[in-house]
Design a protein around this nucleic acid. Structure first.
Lengths: 243, 243
DNA sequence: CGTGCACTTGACAGCTGTCAATGCCGGTGG
DNA sequence: CCACCGGCATTGACAGCTGTCAAGTGCACG
């Protein structure tokens, strides 16, 4: 069972050679981690990427004063660890939010793809830019929204990401993150995350189960978050030619 | 007079072909904008990048509730507008913080570089990842720091960026941003930015002039910010071969 | 049945937002 | 040369959101 690179297919229909190259990148041996384990710490030397095969993972940064923040929630099919390839030592740690399986991608293999398949290289570049936009929306939510709006933005974001594999929006979805995880994601404190969950529930926007949530009014939640829906570029005319 | 791509040279020594390609990318006609002008609005179609030849510019995002945030401060030599190449319509606006000169880079030219020069393509990819790390540090500063710490982080960031061209740290530097600009950058409000400037001044960490600032104790400011210094990867062994 | 983790609730403090008034400075026009 | 004006920075008072601390509940697990 292989996990698709949904992200790249969103930008363009992949050629056979490109699909094969991605298969090869993510075809290496699998490694398992238990919930809470570190997949990579901060300040480690950088020589690889990680492909998340199953489970949820968190990319996490920390501050000298002890503050930490979850920067990205990874779902199966995500590539992890890319931001640090520009650095001597990794800036972000990667942790298993549930039990996970990952596959290691040596950076030399990535270079090989850039050399052989320019169009795929451009898709990697575009995916990196998309990540910047996602983080930009995070910064907007953190800096210019209330805690409740930021939580709404997180729920909408997860809703959209979980929607993509089969195009059926699961307004009920599994949410294996603890409130502490979410607090670290939103830059809030655990107690306040609990208050905001309760506020959204009291307003009839969501309902909650054990480690799961139902969005009762997606559009009202989206409006509350204030983040516009982003439409990905598809088959741009300026992409490098297929090989 | 040409403005160098300092960023790429930081990752590897460029070949003649790579230098020529960059010259060509940034060799197009210049356009001038006055302080405050929009270079590109949000929600515009995306078919180009911008190269900042002179002056300071701001990349800015906005929220449905009217909140806006400056996401990136651009100095001469920066490429602007890249994040939106993954999108149908631009997510970020670009504005002139001072009078500026820019050069337009059609995306087709960028694709051409990816096709011809895989190693340079990888350097573009690494630069994109570096931008993510910078934004990640922003998010840490916004979410897990006090307003004073976040302002210290901004001053340290500018100090390091202004240092790079000639390696002489100008602890006194020109700061052409208004307090309103800085408030939008930090996710604070103008009045509070003024309070924090005054606090840093009262503590002997900085002194201020008209649109300029002096860092009186860089190391204490850095410690206050809590952001570690990042060491860029240089001449990584896994880079694609030179052409 | 005891332990530990996660979540909930309440009270209170503090940081930051908000509003309003003032002052400074440069530019403009008479 | 002087008066006026707009943009920007400063200051003060106050409110509100979020942080902080502490205690209590419920559930999973051994």
């Amino acid at each position: 069972m292989s996990v698709p690179f949904n992200r790249f297919a969103a930008f363009a229909d992949l050629t056979v050679a490109e699909q094969q190259a991605l298969q090869e990148l993510t075809g290496g041996p699998r490694f398992s981690y238990a919930r809470g384990d570190a997949i990579r710490f901060e300040q480690e030397p950088v020589d690889r990427l990680y492909f998340l095969v199953s489970g949820w993972a968190l990319t996490c940064g920390s501050l000298a004063n002890g503050g930490r923040q979850n920067l990205k929630i990874h779902l199966p099919g995500d590539i992890m660890g890319a931001p640090s390839i520009a650095l001597e030592r990794s800036a972000e740690g990667i942790f298993a939010a549930t039990d996970v399986t990952v596959c290691v991608i040596p950076l030399a293999k990535l270079s090989n793809v850039f050399t052989r398949l320019p169009r795929l290289a451009m898709l990697f570049f575009m995916a990196a830019q998309e990540e910047w936009v996602i983080l930009m929306d995070r910064l907007l939510a953190a800096g210019r929204s209330s805690a409740k709006e930021a939580l709404a933005a997180l729920l909408i974001y997860l809703h959209e990401r979980l929607l993509s594999p089969d195009k059926i929006p699961p307004s009920y979805f599994f949410l294996p993150l603890s409130q502490a995880d979410i607090a670290d994601y939103l830059g809030l404190h655990v107690v306040h995350v609990g208050r905001m969950f309760k506020a959204l529930e009291d307003e009839g926007l969501i309902s909650r189960d054990i480690r799961a949530v139902t969005l009762l009014d997606v559009e009202r939640l989206r409006a509350l978050s204030g983040i516009p829906a982003r439409l990905l570029s598809r088959c741009a005319s300026w992409l490098p030619p297929e090989i």
